[in-house]
Simulated assay, not measured.
Amino acid sequence: MEQGPFIPLTSDYGFKATFGNEGNTLFLRTALQALIKSPVPIREVQLEKNAFEALTLDSRSGIFDLACTDEAGNHFIVEMQLGHAPHFVRRMKFYGLHKFNTVVERGRFDYANLPRIYCIAFLERNILPTAGYQHPGQPAR
């Protein structure tokens, strides 16, 4: 039996083809639901633009691997990091705070009803600065 070419999930193309498949989001929805430990199934996700422009001339722009929103209005930023990544946690905070700035509306805005913003990272090795961070694949210390 002949098999086609193998594309590793950890490659940029393999990651985006698996998680960012607009034609079939089942894998993405199932993975997100498991990672946030939600008992409520994610039935739908809308993939979003993964790049954002700087708000001012001297501010930063950014590109994340994948961004989507589910039917409940929860936002997800999904990153894969294989190599050395200085300040990775700060970068994820930057992405999350930028997303926060896009969901806050002008005028009378009720901050009690803010949507959840999840920053999810798939890491090849432990690159986190302290033992205070945890993910499902790493036991709590």
Rank of each mutant, 00 (worst) to 15 (best):
E53Y: 10
I127L: 10
G83D: 13
L123N: 09
S61F: 12
G4Q: 12
R106G: 12
G23V: 02
Y95W: 14
V104N: 03
T102W: 09
A34P: 00
F15S: 04
L47A: 02
R29K: 15
P5E: 15
Y118P: 01
I63P: 05
A112F: 08
K49M: 08
A85S: 15
V89A: 04
F100Q: 08
E22Y: 03
E105M: 07
L97W: 05
M80F: 09
I77A: 05
F52N: 08
R125Y: 12
G137H: 05
G73A: 10
Y133S: 02
F64H: 05
I77N: 11
V78M: 13
P5V: 12
F76I: 02
Y95D: 13
N24Y: 08
G83M: 06
I7G: 04
M80N: 08
P8D: 14
I42Y: 04
F122I: 13
F64A: 07
L26H: 11
F15D: 04
A140M: 11
K93L: 12
T30C: 07
T56Q: 14
Q33K: 02
P139Q: 11
H75R: 15
S59Y: 08
L26S: 10
S59K: 14
R125S: 15
H87S: 13
D12T: 03
P39N: 08
V78S: 06
E71T: 02
V104A: 06
G62Y: 04
E53T: 13
K99Q: 15
